[in-house]
Amino acid sequence: PTPPYLKWAESLHSLLDDQDGIHLFRTFLQQENCADLLDFWFACSGFRKLEPNDSKVEKRLKLAKAIYKKYVLDSNGIVSRQIKPATKSFIKDCVLRQQIDPAMFDQAQMEIQSMMEDNTYPVFLKSDIYLEYT
């Protein structure tokens, strides 16, 4: 069978589908001061997975606000700098109007994902931390 670390090189999703892969990628991103990219990506996935039924409205609103405050609002943050202004306005609008939709972070997540696929992920695959691991 293919060792996991070779699978990690197939695609970003293969990497993010494996606990050890996530851990190593996060360590790399921490060195580059951009671990928030990964945390935000997972926060968006987690938010989308919340079922309207098994989670109170207040909790979803509180979580949406927390994600917005931590990653989108701070214009100096790495995540905020990589999200398009229109996408940020859309999220801000959803939070202010309290129109909390499971898909409200989808576009922002896609933008961060594209950025990781084009940038941090290929750099990770050539990094010492990955090469030493393999």
């Binding site: 996991p4 993010l16 589908d17 494996d18 606990q19 996530i22 945390d39 997972f42 926060a43 968006c44 996935s45 987690g46 938010f47 997975k49 919340l50 909790k59 509180k62 979580l63 606000k65 927390a66 994600i67 405050k69 931590k70």
Partner: peptide, 20 residues
């Protein structure tokens, strides 16, 4: 009452893959 950070952390963890 959960703090915002706890809520965020719980959300991030819920999206991570389970152990192989």
């Amino acid at each position: 009452i959960d703090s915002e950070d706890d809520l965020l952390q719980e959300c991030i963890s819920s999206a991570m893959p389970k152990k192989r």
